[in-house]
Amino acid sequence: MALLEIKNLHVSVGGKKILNGISLALNAGEVHAIMGPNGTGKSTLSNVIAGRDGYDVTEGQVLLDGQDILAMEADERARAGVFLAFQYPVEIPGVTTSAFLKTAINAKRRAEGKPEIDAMEFLKLVKAKQKLLSMPDDMIKRALNVGFSGGEKKRAEVLQMTLLEPRVAILDETDSGLDIDALKIVSEGVNTLRGPDRTFLIITHYQRLLNYIVPDHVHVLVGGRVVASGGKELAEQLEAEGYARYLSAA
């Protein structure tokens, strides 16, 4: 059984159809990349899996371990192991990164029947993970994402992913706004999380990120449909040829 299975997913937003029957099976241990031009439904797909309001699922299922998660609230899905790294992480003044991280870690631990993390253990853990992502220690004292540069925001997303150890990690345009150094650091962070119990769905416009996070499968999304699937060579081909031939076919 696939860890995450998307079956014939149809989604509308405000009466307008965005996804037209997407089916994907993501097995544990695999990294899948979804590529496509702007406005083809890539972010819709990630938001629907994560449980954002405002999307109308008219048909289909999203199964985690064979269980449909579409009826679950976003926070329940997250505790079940779904993680969305946001394209545009929100800035929340007044909420320190550290208070936020602790609340999120404890939400997960409670769901797993574990006791809350103690303060020392928390600081040690965060410090170690921050080092891995070349983040300054004092970043967690700052308000969540407030005044962070584009690169810092994306690193903070990967830091959260590293701390929450999700089973399904969705990266929505994580490469946008990153310079090459930040891209490498973020990719390394993701690569250290790759493992037999986890699957990744990497949504990107460009092939660049996939040089660093090498996918097992690449899917091309055009007009709310998967129009082609292949190995990592498909990404290279798209980089060379563009989306033109898929666009004309769609």
């Binding site: 997250a78 993680f83 909420v95 999120a104 997960k108 769901a111």
Partner: peptide
Amino acid sequence: FYLAARGIDPQAARLLLVQGFLA
């Protein structure tokens, strides 16, 4: 939604945000 996507239930999320607004 951002807090929910990190597994924080709605009540705790509201608490965190109100506290943040005042903090």
